[in-house]
């Protein structure tokens, strides 16, 4: 069975220990919700999981193989939604989404994804005219358009309205029902059935200072 795991992770940012001794493990259909106060390292952990950040110590692994061994393979099975929406002002919604879907080798699935997130009427509208919530939906449409087993969502509900949050919950449930894995950070807006919860405040280092 596919397992997405992290072992004994130590994260250091700017000479300060963000978290230490952190382990996690998620299996197919599983979900992990990261909670914790601001600055407790939710985003840093998601970036570690994505491979954008290298752990100071420890290893993040997919099926027992470290993700740093083959970053391209990890990129192919993973979607990362960060704080930025990566929407180009000069490209239409459809062009924006289909570019990213195309990088993952999917082209015909864009319309369906726009439909699901209720932005198909904006298909030809350039990115510069979108509101914050609409941009976030475009970013999420990118995830739906190219199916991948692992979703890493950093506060995905930011700027979304209630209806879209419900849609997102349903999509996450569907993704998990199909054997997908979701890791997301949140301040508590998304109830996920049977999800593991990781409280990052439990992994803070004592004094916080280490020798460089």
């Amino acid at each position: 069975m596919t397992q997405f795991t992290g072992k004994d992770l130590l994260c250091v940012r700017g000479g300060r220990v963000v978290f230490t001794g952190l382990d996690f493990s998620v299996g197919p259909g599983g979900a992990l919700v990261l909670i914790g106060p601001n600055g407790s390292g939710k985003s840093s952990l998601l970036r570690l999981m994505a491979g954008l950040l290298k752990p100071y110590a420890g290893i993040v692994a997919w099926d027992g193989e470290g993700i740093a061994e083959d970053p391209e393979a990890h990129g192919g099975r993973m979607h990362y939604v960060g704080h930025h929406d990566a929407v180009k002002p000069a490209l239409s919604v459809h062009e924006n989404v289909s570019f990213w879907a195309g990088l993952h080798g999917h082209v015909g699935t864009v319309d369906g994804a726009l439909e699901t997130l209720a932005i198909s009427h904006l298909s030809d509208v350039p990115g510069r005219f979108l509101s914050a919530g609409q941009k976030r939906r475009v970013n999420l449409a990118r995830v739906l358009a190219a199916p991948s087993p692992l979703w890493l969502l950093d506060e995905p509900t930011t700027a979304l309205d209630k209806a879209t949050i419900t849609t997102l919950e349903r999509q996450i449930a569907e993704h998990r029902a199909g054997g997908g894995i979701v890791v997301l950070s949140t301040h508590g807006e998304i109830p996920l059935e049977g999800a593991g919860v990781l409280e990052l405040a439990h992994f803070q280092a004592g004094s916080g200072e280490i020798a460089a």
């Binding site: 994505a50 491979g51 954008l52 970053p71 391209e72 393979a73 990129g75 192919g76 993973m78 990362y80 960060g82 704080h83 930025h84 929406d85 990566a86 929407v87 180009k88 990213w100 990088l103 993952h104 080798g105």
Partner: peptide, 15 residues
């Protein structure tokens, strides 16, 4: 870099 596209390009399934 500013709009986050560079992160996603770095995470794409190609080098």
């Amino acid at each position: 870099y500013e709009d986050g596209s560079l992160e996603l390009l770095a995470l794409a399934p190609v080098p």
